[in-house]
């Protein structure tokens, strides 16, 4: 009478850690390869549920290059029991993975457009697959601006990559920090202050935002002031998730499930709900 669900979407596949790199005092990046099973294909903006065996599971965005096919890359900030347990794993250790899940960034909508990426903190990680695509197929897009804000110079992720990308003459890449010591010669201030410094045609722009909700609220506002319509702005939302498949109820954001209807949403479609507190 009913289709049997197979494989069980709640059962993780076993992945082995191929490389582990420390990006910042509380941030690390793991490259994973499957034990036996095929490498799951993913799209920029999707996420996986990572299990630290015996501890629990967390939703983590994919931060690697989908075109490379050399494993699944996750950049993780240590904020709770699961991420702390994942932080304790070393090269060669195993962890569990379910995924990929969710609706990612609208890559087709970027074609022919100026693209503005607004990233805050760990929010740069889910946008990195987009950056790889933009740079690999640079001719398909208009102006490209990458604006990244983080807490302090020591928290800047992917420093070497950022430096190499900044040497390119065909994109704008600006970094700002909330606070810094005297030896920092870059921008200080919130990420929205970088917006007037880059070139884009607001009527022909798509903007992708990922970071703390407060940063995205102000980011949307600044983009709106610059003339970018709400329909051209996409945000990646975060809520508590236990299943990632729309069955546990935790990630509801009024009518939508962040896990299966998102995490990426066109801003005009959630604008009303984002304006309400504690929804």
């Amino acid at each position: 009478m009913l289709q049997v669900a197979s494989p069980d979407p709640m059962v993780p596949q076993v992945m082995r850690i191929v490389t582990r790199r420390k990006d910042a005092p509380d941030v690390f990046t793991l490259r994973l390869e499957p034990e036996g099973d095929d490498l799951p294909a993913f799209a920029p903006g999707q996420f996986n549920m990572l299990t630290a065996f015996g501890v629990g599971e967390s939703a983590i965005s994919v931060s690697g290059d989908p075109a490379k096919g050399d494993g699944i890359v996750h950049t993780i900030r240590t904020v709770g029991a699961v991420s702390r347990a994942l932080a304790g794993l070393r090269k060669g250790d195993t962890l569990g993975l379910r995924g990929p899940f969710g609706v990612g960034w609208p890559m087709e909508a970027l074609e022919g457009k100026d693209v503005v990426l607004l990233a805050g903190g760990i929010g740069l990680a889910p946008l990195r697959p987009v950056i790889y695509r933009l740079l690999a197929e640079r001719d398909r897009f208009g102006e490209v601006a990458i604006l990244y804000g983080t807490r302090s110079p020591g928290d800047i992720l992917y420093l070497r990559e950022l430096e190499s990308w900044r040497r390119r003459l065909d994109i704008d890449l600006l970094v700002t920090v909330d606070h810094a010591a005297d030896d920092w010669h870059g921008h200080v201030g919130v990420v929205t202050t970088l917006l007037p410094r880059v070139a884009f045609d607001p009527e022909n722009t798509v903007a992708l935002l990922c970071g703390p909700e407060i940063m995205m609220r102000f980011g949307v506002q600044a983009l709106g002031n610059a003339g970018v319509p709400d329909e051209a702005i996409y945000v990646s939302m975060e809520r508590n998730m236990k299943c990632a498949i729309g069955l546990c109820g935790h990630c509801q954001f009024s009518p939508v499930f962040i896990c299966k209807d998102g995490p990426v949403f066109r801003y005009d479609r959630i604008r009303y709900h984002l304006a309400l507190k504690e929804l």
Partner: peptide, 22 residues
């Protein structure tokens, strides 16, 4: 609605996950 709970033996060898009403 449900949540999940992971369990482990003391050595971390045998682990499991349960779903429970939330």
């Amino acid at each position: 609605c449900t949540t999940v709970e992971d369990a482990s033996d003391l050595a971390g060898v045998e682990t499991s996950r349960e779903r429970r009403w939330d």
